[in-house]
């Protein structure tokens, strides 16, 4: 390797501060999974084609596989491990369980992070719009109906406590 010297990178991840020395070629996804043991964020394609690696960066949903970790110096990252408030699940997490919005569960962290980002964006009103704006998250098991049902349930504020 021509370059072994890491770059000091400060990140806030799930409200914890990290100072890490990172080589530039480490993706945010690989950093989370392999360096920090935050394996809730999944690698499904590593090329921005499936959405399984979706995390929230400074409140916006992004793909951690196409992000260099060093380029997010100073950012706040929220992953699936940081979505619940302690032992109290996020309404979307509850709605996913209730609506059977997953089978194998592998796309689930990305779906939930993406849905949180989408609801914050506030651009989707109808079910059709939600489907379109969630289409960056593929589900191979075909749990799509449950996923959209769960999101609509939370969006419409009818989430059961």
């Amino acid at each position: 390797m021509e370059n072994k010297s890491g770059i000091l990178t400060s990140l806030t991840i799930n409200n914890n501060d990290y100072k890490l020395e990172l080589l530039p070629w480490v993706s945010l996804l690989d950093m989370l999974r392999e360096r920090l043991n935050l394996t809730g964020t999944k690698k499904g394609c590593d090329h921005g084609q499936c959405g399984a690696c979706t995390v929230l960066c400074d409140g916006r949903r992004i793909l951690s596989c196409l992000t260099l970790a060093v380029s997010k110096n100073g950012s706040e990252i929220l992953t699936i491990e940081g979505i619940a408030a302690g032992s109290e699940l996020h309404p979307l997490q509850k709605a996913f369980i209730e609506n059977d919005a997953f089978q194998c569960g592998y796309c689930t962290p990305g779906q939930i992070c993406s849905a949180i980002g989408m609801l914050q964006e506030g651009k989707a009103q109808t079910r059709e719009e939600v489907k379109e704006l969630m289409s960056g998250n593929l589900c191979r098991c075909g749990a799509n109906v449950g996923i959209i049902d769960a999101i609509m349930q939370v969006k419409e504020g009818s989430g059961h406590e």
Binding site: L38, T39, G40, T41, T79, I80, E81, I83, A84, L89, Q93, F96, I97, E98, D100, F102, G105, T108, P109, I112
Partner: peptide, 13 residues
């Protein structure tokens, strides 16, 4: 509901 639901929605699976 799936008994492993909690693990799957929290990333601990």
């Amino acid at each position: 509901s799936r008994l492993e639901g909690l693990e799957k929605v929290t990333g601990s699976a």
